[in-house]
Design a protein around this nucleic acid. Structure first.
Lengths: 230, 230
DNA sequence: ACCTGAACACCGTTCAAGT
DNA sequence: ACCTGAACACCGTTCAAGT
């Protein structure tokens, strides 16, 4: 019952998931391996199978863990568009915590408890705002997937490597664009700095979220004559 | 030089990529294996390394191939929002051809020739429409990523399995939602049919694309006083 | 130019067995 | 309840060698 080694935590499902996320961030998702994890815990690979059914279940658990840090900074009685923005922003903040495992969010967002609760809340606020059922469903899904998409495509945050390594990758991309024929790609060459380098990630997220909210808003006003709110 | 077996095509880079996409669609992306491909061509695994540097390059080539079928049904002198819609639609149509390999599109869209040309065209039309440089860059990226996102999240098109197998998976998901406590998830239960079953995929795509276009449109009019078009 | 044989260092997973 | 040993069927990849 006593800790055998203070630097080596007890083996448990949560500890495994946590360590897996760390490895994903420090290296890559395919560095996350049953055998590697066993090694990190000073245990044989097979020991993990007691705590986790198989690797797929581990990846699912990692995906679910991404949503654990979710906080939505808006109360139920604020305007629907304020709430919707807060939901997407909260999701983005949560997912950004583990860059290496961002792609796992896709398949778990409509599966895990937090994701379902968030979906419920989004549907509720959209229905109450006056969106038709079909619209509410589509916009809710769009909102959640948008958050995943933005995090996944944030310029200059491809794989979870060292920070200065990311800088070199960006430089490579920009260099590749510089080499394109100026006659055929004038605009791309002119705007390359904006596409690959992201000096201000928060501005990037804000702009794209606003774009989405504006679209939703105009959809609502356009359909208001045809549909009657519940 | 003569075909040794008419049912077994010559080994070549293109043939390998094509077969890999077929396997991805018929089964899953991780059924796509160097060894499996060698087997399908009646050749040892190592033979592939002559035509393809390594597996990563193969996956990249598969991703690039997704964009090969791209057609944008809009000419340069149509309104900018019509063109923008046609671009996203064209991309969606192209990516839908290989459901099993959709996830590969993400990392190649700004890398492959077709993707770069499409980006250039999008930037050009947005700049000419009057968007500021930063806005044009963000919206262009958003447009391209949106297409990938929609294809990846089309309800009821998760993995590239049999069509009736997809039906059972949808039924499972809906059943899971039915089991949720009615007090906590009234909206989700009410709208479950819209979220998981997609009776009309084209309508799904149209709605979401329109949502995006509407957002872009309102961004343009909002910023028109501040920015002067080129 | 194009392919094979043999070998290496990895995977995930099962299952009976230990404590 | 929790972990190990041994084994199995897979991977991707290299490299010298064949034709």
């Amino acid at each position: 019952m006593m800790a055998k080694n203070s630097s080596r935590p007890e083996l448990s499902r949560d500890a495994i998931v946590e360590r897996a996320l760390e490895i994903g961030d420090a290296e890559t998702l395919d560095a996350v391996t049953i055998r590697r994890l066993g090694q990190e815990f000073g245990v044989t690979p097979m020991a993990l199978y007691w705590h986790v059914k198989n690797k797929d279940e581990l990846l699912d658990a990692m995906g679910d863990a991404l949503f654990a840090a979710l906080v939505v900074e808006a109360s139920d009685d604020e305007a629907w568009d304020v709430q919707l923005r807060a939901i997407v922003q909260g999701l983005v903040q949560a997912l950004r915590r583990h860059p290496g495992s961002r792609e796992l969010a896709y398949r778990r967002i409509m599966q895990c408890a937090v994701g379902l609760q968030l979906t419920e809340r989004t549907l509720r606020l959209l229905r109450r705002a006056g969106f038709a059922p079909r619209q509410a469903a589509d916009i809710a899904m769009h909102a959640l997937q948008l958050a995943v998409m933005l995090v996944q495509s944030e310029p200059g945050a491809e794989a979870g490597w060292t920070e200065d390594d990311a800088a070199t990758r960006i430089a490579e991309k920009r260099a590749a664009v510089e080499q394109l024929p100026a006659d055929d790609f004038p605009y791309l060459r002119e705007l390359a700095q904006y596409m690959f380098d992201c000096d201000d990630p928060d501005a990037f997220y804000d702009f794209n979220i606003d774009l989405f909210i504006a679209g939703a808003r105009s959809t609502l006003t356009a359909g208001e004559t045809a549909e009657s709110p519940a």
